[in-house]
Amino acid sequence: MKVGGKSFVILPIIFCIGIFAVLYAALAPTMAPIVSIAGVMFSDKEADYSTEYKNIFVPVSESETVETVTNAEGEPEVKAEVVQYPNYGNQFGEILIPDCGIECPLFMGDGDIALSNGVGIYYGSFVPGYGGTTMIAGHNNTFFNGLKFAAAGQEITIRTSYGNYRYQIRETAVKEALDTTAYDLSADYDNLVLYTCYPFDEIGLTSQRFFVYADLVEGITIEKPEEGE
């Protein structure tokens, strides 16, 4: 005798679809915004907690030249296409201050990984050669401890994959950490500002910063796109 039938397969499937339909109809109005917000918490790939950083720095020797173009004033500029702009967290150069015993990697951004492995450019400033203020931070008891010996006239060299830049220290100053007049990010000429916590060997989170101001003496400007491009 035959027992059962098609309904024993079809009806459970209909019930399953019906249950999800009922729950969707009942919960969608309240849950939809929550689901949208929750969706922001997920990415397309699995999380990566590696603390490795990307190093795009390839030194340019003094005798080597990078590809250049001539600007309207007849001066050479590094061709924009050869410049690999660093992303946040990349090492893209190194900084040397022989008189202070400083030689360390230079990163884009001043986050934890950058300052644990070298010194980092404040993300709101510019890379060397871009024609603006390059502001670099470092910890005073690690890579920037040597800044305590900084004085006017000393030389600073920044090496990148698109060129080498030499600066001369103009002056040093101690200012409050929250003093925004301590630096000028709107300057339209290449200049360098280094800063670290002050006093150098004091224990604790200090409210002062030690600033080093330097002017560019040698280094090729980067070609910028024309306005409207």
Binding site: D112, N141, D201, E202
Partner: peptide
């Protein structure tokens, strides 16, 4: 440790 780097602690 990162806080220590900014505060003079090894």
């Amino acid at each position: 440790v990162q806080l220590g780097n900014a505060s003079g602690l090894p």
